[in-house]
């Protein structure tokens, strides 16, 4: 899909940044489409998936992609840690919230969670579980930052840590990372995840 710089419409206040709408959407279709390349977007747009996560596209070409998602009645989230060209700071969050009008922001950094909440967009914090020794400090960070929702990665770790997370922070959980099979999706949902996030198009209903 061709991307170009478009002067954004005046959107301040127009975007729904409430987590209730997100959870409503997931209660109908519990899948978020992870889009790391613009070419993958059309398939996500025509699917039943209610939420799209943008991982990689350059920040200053994001507008048309996000607005295409929202025009379909879906919610658009942007991963601020991974997109190119944008400062990973308050000004970066404010750009995404005010100029682009994203519904939510995904980050693994507690400071950016606070900035996202201040901009009244949905704050999704990534819990990156590569090492069991890192779990206590990750949970402490989560408890401190209090995002609206948590994304736990990779999926294979979720069953091992779900009870520890729940005991500490009563937040809705999305499971992502190498979710490629229907069985993995079902297992995550059975263990209490509100949704999975996946780039595997066969799992986009």
């Amino acid at each position: 899909m061709a991307t170009r710089i478009v002067v954004p419409p005046a959107r301040i206040g127009a975007v729904d940044g409430s987590v209730t709408r997100l959870l409503d959407a997931f209660s109908r279709v519990p899948v978020a489409a992870v889009v790391s390349r613009a070419e993958e977007l059309p398939r996500a747009l025509t699917s039943q998936v209610p939420v799209v996560f943008f991982l990689r596209p350059p920040a200053f070409h994001l507008g048309p992609l996000v607005w295409a998602v929202q025009a379909r009645g879906k919610l658009a989230f942007v991963h601020i840690d991974l997109i190119a060209g944008l400062g990973k700071d308050r000004a970066g969050i404010a750009f995404l919230a005010r100029e682009i009008g994203v519904n939510g922001i995904i980050t693994s950094h507690s400071a950016l969670v606070a900035a996202a909440k201040a901009e009244r967009v949905i704050a999704m914090q990534r819990l990156l579980l590569h090492d069991d020794l890192a779990v206590p400090s990750a949970l402490a960070a989560l408890e401190h930052a209090r995002p609206d929702i948590v994304e736990v990665l990779p999926g294979v770790i979720f069953p091992l840590v779900v009870d520890r997370i729940r005991a500490r922070v009563p937040l809705p959980i999305i499971v992502g990372g190498f979710m490629t099979e229907p069985e993995q999706r079902n297992a995550a949902l059975e263990r209490g995840a509100v949704a999975i996030s996946t780039g595997t198009t066969s799992l986009w209903p």
């Binding site: 990689r56 991974l82 579980l129 590569h130 190498f178």
Partner: peptide
């Protein structure tokens, strides 16, 4: 870090030259 396919791709693309003695995948269960 093997957390999701995007991250794994980034990690594999950054493999150093000269070739490392080994690569360590975290978490091992992935």
């Amino acid at each position: 870090h093997a957390l999701d396919s995007t991250g794994l791709e980034t990690g594999l693309n950054s493999i150093v030259s000269p070739a490392p003695y080994a690569i360590a995948i975290a978490p091992a269960v992935a």
